[in-house]
Design a protein around this nucleic acid. Structure first.
Length: 671
DNA sequence: TCACAGTGGATTTTT
DNA sequence: TCCACTGTGA
C-alpha cells in the first residue's frame, strides 16, 4: 500500500536500502511524502523495529508533520515505546546530552541559552557596549562552533586585531557557559560530535541503536551536523538523505553545500535519485524557476516539470516607489479574491527583509484585508515570556547566573546593579553561582543589610520552589510561582492597561503551552525548561485564520500558496548588496545564494506569481532613487518583463474603500 | 532605582 | 520609520 501513490523515482527512493542514498528533491516534488513512506516501508514491509529508525529534520514543524504523516501511513502500531525517533537536530542534541550528561560534564538540568542570553555573555566577554560589534562576534563564534573549531584553534588562526579579540571572547564565552552549566544552540550539535569522537563505548551504543537514518533538508547542514551524521552512521547503518541543493539559503549560518559533495566521496556507493516531477506549481511558474536557477553552476542538473497545466503567466510590475508597490499588491489581492473566489489565506506576499513588511501591512489594513506576519519577535522571545522562563530555568539549574539576574530583578525587589556587582565579585572569588554566593557568610560583611535581606529572601524563595518542582506537577508549581511573584500586578503597575493585558495574555498563553506539553508527554519541569528553549515562533500558536500571509523569503521555505507576490525584486535588495562588495570568492558564493532565494520564492507559488520592483524605495530617512529591476527578473525569461505595467484600472485608481467595492462590483458584473 | 527623552543604526534567523 | 540603547534628573 505504501508505494501505490508514488511515482517511479519516489518509489525507488523509498525502496533503496542497499547503499547510502541521496534524494535530490526539487521544490514541491513530494519530499516529506518520500521520507514518511520510507518510514512506513521499513516498519510495515521490512519489519524493522521502529525505535531503530531516526528521522532528523531542522524545524519542529517538519518533525511534527513527519510524525503525523507516519501515523497515517504506518500500519504497525508505533505508539509508546515503539516509536521511531523523529526529531530535530537540536532536540536530538538535547536528548543526547541528557543521556550522556556525564560524558558532557553537564548536570541533567543544564540550561540552553538562546541568542539573547549568548549575546549578553559575549558582550561581557568583549567588555564592550557596542551591540553591533557584539553581534558580529556572536555570529563569528557561531560559525567557528559550526565549523568545529575550538577556541584555542580560533585564537591561533586569527590574524587581525578584530579576529583576535573575537577569538579571545570565544574562549571566555566557552568558559563562562560551562560555569553556568549552560550550552548554546550550536553546542547541542558540537558537544555530541566531540563525545562521539572520543568515546568509543558511547559511539558504538548509538550506532547499534540507530540502524536507519533519514535526514531531511540535508543541503542546510553545517560541518558540525555533517560530522554528527557521519558519527551516528555506523558501518551497518542505512541512511537516506533528502534535500535540494537549489534551496540552500542558510549559508550565512554555516550551512554548506560541500556536504552534498562530500557525501559522494565519503560514501562511494552513494545512490543519487532525483525527484523532478513537481506537484505544486503550474508550468509558467516552473519555467521561470528553472530559468533562474539555471544561471547557477550546478552540482546536479535538475529540471522541474508538472502535469498541472500552464496556469497564469508570471506578471512583473514596475512601481514608482514602495508605497505604490504595497498599494498595488493590496488592491490586486482584493480583486483576485473576488475574481477567483479565493480565500485570503490563498495569498502570500514574500520579501527579502523584514522591514518591507511595514508598508505592506499598512496597505493591507487600508483595504481591510486580514493578514498575519511571520518573523519579527518570536512568541518565546517576548520580554514577559522570557521573564517567566528565567524563573523556570533557575529552578532547574541554580548555576544559571543570567537567569538569576533576570529573575531577581523582575519584578523589582529593590536590588540594583551595584548590589549585583558586589555579589558577582563574591561569586567570582568563591567560584560559585550568584545564588550560592548570597548565602555565603562573607556576603554579610560586603553588603548592607537592606541589600542582603531581599537577596536572601529571594534565595530562600527559589530553594523552596526548587524543592517543590521536584515533587509536584508542573502546572501547580507554575501557578503558585506566578501568584507568589505577583507578576500580573507588576505588569499592570508598570505599563498602560492595554499593553499590560496583552503581556499578561502572552504569559497565560505561555503557561498554557507549558502545562499542555507537560501533561501530554508526562514531562517534568526540568524537561520542560529545555523544551521551551527549543520552541520557536512557529510553535506557539497554530493560526488557521483566513488571512494573507506576509513573510520573508527565508521563513517561506517549505510553504506554498495558490497566489504569491514577490515584492522588492530589485538590484541591491534581491540580490541583496549587503556584504557582496567584500572579497570576490565569498561574494560569488553569496550571490548564488541570493539567486536560490529567488528560486525558493518563485517555487512557493501554485497558480499565479506576481513579481514587483520599485524605482525608488524609502530606507530610513533617505529615499534611494534610480533603482533597477533585479537581474533575476531578466533571468526568468519573460517577454516585456522590464516594461511598466499598464495604467491602473478603475478599481485600482479608486481612493476610498467604498469606491473600490463599487468598481469591483462593476468588474464582476461585466465578467 | 526608574522614567524619560534624545541618538544612532537598521539582511536573512529552521534551533 | 521605528526600535533599542544611553545618559540624565528625580
Amino acid at each position: 500500500m505504501t508505494s501505490a501513490a508514488l511515482n517511479p523515482a519516489q518509489r525507488e527512493a523509498v525502496r533503496h536500502l542497499e547503499t547510502p542514498c541521496l534524494v535530490l528533491a526539487g521544490a514541491g516534488s513530494g519530499k516529506t511524502r518520500v521520507i514518511a513512506s520510507k518510514l512506513a516501508y521499513l516498519i510495515d514491509e521490512c519489519g524493522v523495529a521502529a525505535p531503530s529508525i531516526a528521522a532528523i529534520t531542522f524545524t519542529n514543524k517538519a518533525a511534527r508533520e513527519m510524525l503525523e504523516r507516519a501515523r497515517t501511513l504506518v500500519q504497525t502500531p508505533i505508539e509508546g515505546r515503539r516509536k521511531p525517533l523523529i526529531s530535530t537536530f537540536h532536540a536530538l542534541g538535547v536528548h543526547f546530552l541528557r543521556t550522556e550528561a556525564q560524558a558532557a560534564a553537564l548536570k541533567p538540568g543544564f540550561s540552553i541559552f538562546a541568542a539573547d542570553d549568548s549575546l549578553g555573555v559575549i558582550t561581557q566577554a568583549l567588555g564592550t557596549t557596542d551591540r553591533v560589534l557584539a553581534r558580529a562576534v556572536q555570529s563569528q563564534i557561531s560559525l567557528w562552533k559550526n565549523g568545529l573549531i575550538e577556541p584555542d584553534e580560533a585564537v591561533a588562526r586569527s590574524t587581525g586585531d578584530r579576529d583576535q579579540a573575537a577569538a579571545r571572547a570565544y574562549r571566555e564565552y566557552a568558559a563562562t557557559l560551562s560555569a553556568y552549566q549552560a550550552v548554546d544552540f550550536d553546542d547541542l550539535i558540537r558537544l555530541p560530535v566531540r563525545i562521539l569522537e572520543r568515546d568509543l563505548e558511547v559511539r558504538e551504543r548509538w550506532q547499534r541503536r540507530l540502524r536507519y537514518l533519514l535526514i531531511d533538508e540535508v543541503q542546510d547542514t553545517n560541518a558540525a551536523q555533517y560530522a554528527w551524521l557521519r558519527l551516528l552512521a555506523g558501518p551497518l547503518t542505512h541512511f537516506t538523505a533528502v534535500g535540494d541543493d537549489d534551496q540552500s539559503i542558510y549559508g550565512w549560518r554555516g550551512a554548506t553545500l560541500d556536504n552534498l559533495q562530500r557525501l559522494g566521496t565519503d560514501y562511494p556507493t552513494l545512490k543519487v535519485i532525483k525527484l523532478e516531477q513537481n506537484y505544486r506549481s503550474c508550468q509558467h511558474i516552473l519555467n521561470a524557476a528553472n530559468q533562474v536557477i539555471r544561471a547557477n553552476p550546478k552540482l546536479f542538473e535538475k529540471t522541474l516539470w508538472s502535469e498541472l497545466g500552464p496556469g497564469d503567466p508570471v506578471l512583473v510590475s514596475a512601481c514608482e516607489d514602495d508605497e505604490e508597490e504595497a498599494e498595488r499588491i493590496a488592491v490586486r489581492i482584493s480583486a483576485m479574491k473576488f475574481e477567483r473566489r479565493a480565500r485570503f489565506a490563498d495569498f502570500a506576499v514574500l520579501y527579502r527583509s523584514n522591514q518591507q513588511a511595514r508598508l505592506l501591512e499598512q496597505a493591507l489594513r487600508k483595504q481591510h484585508i486580514p493578514y498575519t506576519v511571520t518573523g519579527g519577535t518570536s512568541f518565546f522571545e517576548r520580554t514577559e515570556v522570557r521573564d517567566l522562563a528565567a524563573y523556570l530555568r533557575l529552578l532547574v539549574n541554580d548555576d544559571d547566573d543570567p537567569a538569576f539576574i533576570r529573575a531577581v530583578t523582575t519584578p523589582r525587589r529593590g536590588i540594583g546593579a551595584a548590589t549585583l556587582e558586589t555579589l558577582g565579585a563574591l561569586a567570582g572569588e568563591r567560584q560559585c553561582s550568584l545564588l550560592a554566593a548570597l548565602f555565603e557568610t562573607a556576603a554579610e560583611s560586603r553588603l548592607a543589610a537592606r541589600q542582603l535581606a531581599p537577596l536572601r529572601e529571594f534565595g530562600a524563595f527559589i530553594h523552596r520552589f526548587t524543592w517543590r518542582a521536584e515533587r509536584e506537577t508542573v502546572a501547580v508549581v507554575i501557578d503558585d510561582l506566578l501568584a507568589a511573584i505577583a507578576y500580573r500586578d507588576w505588569l499592570f503597575d508598570n505599563e498602560p492597561d492595554r499593553q499590560a493585558s496583552q503581556r499578561w495574555q502572552n504569559v497565560c498563553e505561555f503557561v498554557d503551552w507549558i502545562k499542555r506539553r507537560a501533561e501530554e508527554d508526562g514531562r517534568n519541569l526540568l524537561e520542560m525548561a529545555q523544551l521551551m528553549a527549543l520552541a520557536s515562533r512557529l510553535d506557539g500558536r497554530e493560526d488557521d485564520s483566513d488571512a494573507v500571509r506576509l513573510s520573508t523569503l527565508h521563513a517561506a521555505k517549505g510553504l506554498e500558496w495558490p497566489h504569491v507576490f514577490l515584492a522588492g525584486v530589485e538590484e541591491g535588495l534581491l540580490p541583496s548588496s549587503v556584504g557582496l562588495e567584500d572579497d570576490a570568492a565569498d561574494a560569488i558564493v553569496r550571490f548564488e545564494e541570493e539567486r536560490r532565494l529567488m528560486y525558493v520564492g518563485i517555487t512557493r507559488a501554485q497558480r499565479s506569481l506576481q513579481v514587483s520592483w520599485c524605482r525608488q524605495r524609502s530606507r530610513g530617512r533617505e529615499r534611494v532613487a534610480e533603482r533597477e529591476p533585479s537581474r533575476f527578473i531578466a533571468e526568468m525569461g519573460l517577454d516585456r518583463a522590464l516594461e511598466k505595467t499598464p495604467d491602473l484600472s478603475p478599481e485600482q485608481k479608486a481612493q476610498t474603500p467604498q469606491e473600490r467595492i463599487a468598481a469591483l462590483q462593476a468588474l464582476l458584473r461585466k465578467s
